[in-house]
Amino acid sequence: MSKNVQSAQRDQTQNGQQEQILTVKNLRKTFGGITAVADVSFHVEKGSITGLIGPNGAGKSTTFDLITGVQRPDGGAVEFNDTEITGYRSDQVANQGLVRTFQIARELSEMTVLENLMLAPQNQVGEAIWRAVLPRARTQVVEQEKALRKQAWEMLELFEIEHVAHESAGNLSGGQRKLLEMARVLMTDPEMVLLDEPLAGVNPTLEEKLIDRLHTLKEQGYTFLFVEHDMDVIMNNCDTVIVMHQGSVLTEGQPDTVKNNDKVLDAYLGEEVTI
């Protein structure tokens, strides 16, 4: 893992000058008569922790789906690292270095925690059948598997879930599943991670640890965009906050400015808000 992190660090601009990693322009998505995402534009700076907030049904998860290719947008564009990735399949998006977790943890429950982690790294040589089978090519596979195993154990240590390494993922507690999801996406060696409510259902001690990890990883050069309903968490940990309401971006800015924005309060209280 250290290797990837170093490369991520190198990519980060040194002099504090800000660089955009993700740009979203006029995204739109309707389901039948329901407009889930009306018109969403924002950008995320490299190496930041950016919060995405908004009342239930604001369209946050759908926005994630549109960015990561889980659903096709009806209109708009997504740019990642200066590459237009609009309409990419989700595996293509992931291969660009942009991965996401799901709001409801989607652990692969019949696989063990370690298997979950070993699955994630991309472009494994053993994903070609012939290499998995032919004796000579297989030594190469085994070599890589050993390296991945080491990386997986390190990841388990980082998230302090070594004791459940051989447990079926389905047997984990809700909080442990969230940790597993995060560990798993990090195993893909991403540049940026979209986290959909990573703290929901996580107990306070664990929550603190998770946030701690987030900052450690940020230091190492990762970028995070994360959805969270707990205002205190957002205000204390994010560099920038984006507020969504009824499928559109209501406002964005520094946590303090956003906090004191009347429109945001109204949106959360369910009042009419004009955007």
Binding site: T68, V70, R89, S90, D91, A94, N95, V99, R100, F102, R106, L108, L119, A120, Q122, E127, R184, V185, T188
Partner: peptide, 8 residues
């Protein structure tokens, strides 16, 4: 879907 989201 999860498998695909992991880049496969």
């Amino acid at each position: 879907q999860v498998t695909q989201a992991l880049g496969k």
